[in-house]
Design a protein around this nucleic acid. Structure first.
Length: 378
DNA sequence: CGGATTTGACCTGCGC
DNA sequence: GCGCAGGTCAAATCCG
């Protein structure tokens, strides 16, 4: 574990230095192209994983008073004439290009979906976010309706989720997340958001650049990212690539008895239960031991995340571990860390990558990264 | 009374 | 072009 920790530190240092170099390059490019003196010198971080807190300035840029200029939303109205209304964008093609590139990136992130299967009697998983239900439909082949929720923690947050009970097992709640938050999240929400975003990043990193163009080849690429035998599955079926985190393994009784994720010594197991969409091409991914989301009494101390949200902590820990157990997780990890570094640098105004190393390895921030570290040090 | 939910209508993409 | 299914909108309704 120490070796792994050292290795992660090294990778983090590498990511940090790469980010610094990239940021310097971006600043130089923007200064050369835009020549906008009133713009802030520090560029917004690459938004591989925008679920992490972003500065207010960043949000203000993304969310001007005109709500139709929502960044990251594919439903931009062409009739609002934003370019005409915003002389800065008109006069700054460099920024415009950067914004468009970011939109494309976020569009890709929005297309990637992370589905979490968990046993829960509750109608919805308490993941720490505020959601507003905006629709419900009967899906074909499932007697249970599918509910559509939208994140309401920020006006223009593009994140949505679908909640549906499994047709085969009504006790299984399938929650599909789509998009990345563009606002700071409470600690309770950070864990699940980080996990799902990291999973989406991992999927996209294995399927880019043309996840939609050639699903079969991208599927093979994505397949290379994840090892076999496990609970995280990737579906390359149209229209969206989907990562499924299956947190329902094992008999419910046994899971309820243990009620604790076990991140170490996972014996080989039977293939995962069939997913709801049987037409999806899928393969076994990461493995995690069985547990239930019901939480339950446990003599062990609670996990370091999700304080006060009961079984969610187990859910999130397991989901994070399922992803972070992958040795090839570095691509997604880099995306998440980059966001962390970017956010902290904007707050501190003097980015120090080394300080971030300590944060990642010692803090109890509810990120997939910290969960990975926590699982190592346990 | 304001915010959240419900639910029928509408839009869009896809297959035939 | 048509029908189907998924997804979204928005008026009506509910609820604290």
């Amino acid at each position: 574990m120490n070796e792994e920790n050292q290795r992660l530190r090294g990778m983090l240092a590498q990511v940090s230095s790469s980010y610094q170099a990239l940021q310097m390059h971006l600043v130089a490019l923007m200064q050369a192209q835009a020549q906008q003196p009133h713009r802030q010198a520090i560029a917004p971080p690459p938004r591989h994983s925008s679920i992490l807190p972003s500065s207010n300035n960043d949000q203000e840029e993304q969310q001007p008073s005109n709500s139709s200029t929502e960044v990251g939303s594919p439903r931009r109205s062409p009739s609002t004439g934003n370019k005409d209304d915003d002389p800065q964008q008109q006069a700054a093609p460099g920024w415009l290009q950067a914004a468009e590139g970011r939109q494309q990136q976020e569009a890709s992130m929005r297309k990637a979906r992370v589905s979490v299967r968990a046993r829960s009697e509750a109608p919805i998983i308490a993941d720490g976010c505020q959601w507003r239900k905006y629709g419900q439909k009967m899906a074909k082949g499932n007697p249970c309706p599918r509910a559509y929720y939208r994140c309401t923690m920020a006006n223009a947050c593009p994140v949505r989720k679908q909640v549906q009970r499994c047709a085969d097992d009504r006790s299984i709640l399938i929650t599909t997340y789509e998009g990345t938050h563009n606002h700071p999240l409470p600690p309770a929400a950070m864990a699940m958001a980080s996990t799902t975003s990291a999973a989406a990043s991992m999927l996209l990193s294995g399927s880019m650049p043309s996840a939609d163009a050639n699903s079969s080849s991208s599927f093979l690429q994505a397949r290379a990212v994840l090892p076999s035998n496990g609970m995280a599955t990737i579906s390359a079926s149209a229209p969206f690539p989907t990562v499924t985190l299956d947190l329902t393994h094992g008999p419910p009784a046994a899971a309820a008895a243990t009620a604790r994720p076990q991140f170490h010594h996972v014996p080989p197991l039977q293939p995962p239960p069939p997913l709801y969409n049987h037409n999806q091409s899928k393969f076994s991914g990461l493995h995690l031991s069985s547990f239930s989301t019901d939480g339950g009494a446990s003599s062990e101390p609670p996990p370091p995340i999700g304080v006060g949200i009961g079984g969610l902590a187990d859910t999130v820990s397991a989901a994070a571990a399922a992803i972070t157990a992958d040795p090839n997780f570095t691509v997604a990890l880099a995306a998440a860390i980059t966001s962390i570094i970017g956010g902290q640098q904007q707050q501190q105004q003097h980015g120090d990558g080394q300080a971030n190393h300590n944060n990642v390895t010692s803090s109890s921030n509810n990120t997939a990264t910290s969960n990975n570290t926590n699982s190592e040090t346990q």
